[in-house]
């Protein structure tokens, strides 16, 4: 038998050019709508997007710059705004890594193992999605506040939780709890356990299997989860508002600071700080797009089956 005859040695069929580099939409009269319907649908979609997404974003920046660039800069340079920015970044820096570890562990546990109480755990992970953030904040006040269950113990040891950074971090962690786990669970369930078992038969330890096989498989889902989690951590208002105490320059995060400025009719300043928060979100998005662009090949390879 010559190698040429061996069908099992054949390369997979090449992907036709239209799938990479060809026109995005192929027009085929038999399966598409008439031109006016298509344009109408596109116009509706674009109109909706601009009205509800682009317009508000543009409004934030125009309002912020209404009184000129000088006023804008002064509003940002204000020490209270600076400390609010610092606190927001700090809260996210605490909450995101903790939820990263928790989210991966929970998703791993739920998708790769069978155990009693699994459904309960899944429901628990969803709890922060279903409970109002204000309620979550109040619960923390109830537990850690001066009159709370654990409050006296913390007061005795001179640890401030409520109206201080730990409380804000706790509230942020609670609210951003599900983002990473929820992103990973369906992905890991779909991937199954074959790859991990293959790694084990090839002599890899549990840790190496996780590091070399599981983690690369979920890399993109994980990144997306982290970005979502981060965006929410930056923007969280309700729960943090309850536990922070609104002490200017000490326990105000950016969203809280914006609200205070707004209530004080300092519109230009409020929008200036808001533009800062929006800017953070845009940077996150930009980062994601950059990574996707940089690793487009890998991304394509891992999605094609």
């Amino acid at each position: 038998m010559s190698i040429l005859e061996d069908k099992s040695l054949q390369d997979p069929p090449a992907i036709p050019a239209i799938f990479h580099g060809g026109p995005l939409i192929q027009t085929n009269a038999a399966i598409t709508e008439p031109a006016w319907v298509r344009w109408l649908l596109i116009a509706i979609a674009l109109g909706f997007l601009s009205l509800f997404l682009l317009l508000p974003l543009a409004a934030v920046f125009t309002e912020a710059l209404r009184d000129g660039f000088g006023t804008y800069l002064t509003a940002l340079k204000e020490p209270d705004a600076y400390s609010a920015l610092k606190l927001t970044l700090l809260a996210a820096a605490i909450a995101v890594p903790l939820n990263l570890v928790f989210g991966v562990a929970a998703a791993w546990c739920i998708s790769k193992f069978e155990f009693r109480g699994k459904q309960l755990l899944i429901s628990l992970i969803d709890l922060p999605f279903s409970v109002s953030p204000v309620v979550a904040g109040l619960v923390y006040v109830l537990i850690f506040g001066a009159q709370g269950w654990a409050g006296s113990w913390f007061a005795e040891h001179d640890i401030k939780v409520i109206f201080a950074v730990p409380g804000i971090a706790l509230a942020t962690i609670f609210v951003t709890f599900p983002f990473i786990a929820r992103e990973l669970i369906p992905l890991m369930q779909e991937q199954g356990t074959d790859d991990e078992q293959a790694a084990l038969t090839l002599g890899a330890t549990g840790f190496k299997t996780f590091w070399r096989v599981t983690l690369p498989n979920i890399k993109w889902g994980l990144l997306y989860g982290v970005l979502l989690c981060n965006a929410r951590a930056f923007g969280e208002f309700g729960a943090v508002s309850v536990v922070s105490g609104h002490i200017r320059g000490q326990t105000n995060t950016l969203p809280l600071h914006i609200e205070i400025l707004y209530n004080e009719y300092a519109f230009a300043a409020a929008f200036a700080v808001a533009s800062l928060l929006a800017g953070l979100a845009l940077i996150t998005l930009l980062l994601k797009s950059l990574l996707e662009w940089r690793y487009a090949d890998q991304l394509a390879a891992s999605r094609r089956h």
């Binding site: 078992q197 790694a199 090839l202 690369p216 890998q298």
Partner: peptide, 24 residues
């Protein structure tokens, strides 16, 4: 063990897949 659906590591090249057991 050869799995029914091969369970090749998608993010590794053919050579890396084969050398996996050596590299761990």
């Amino acid at each position: 063990f050869v799995f029914q659906h091969y369970a090749l590591f998608k993010h590794m090249t053919v050579a890396e897949n084969i050398a996996f057991s050596l590299s761990v």
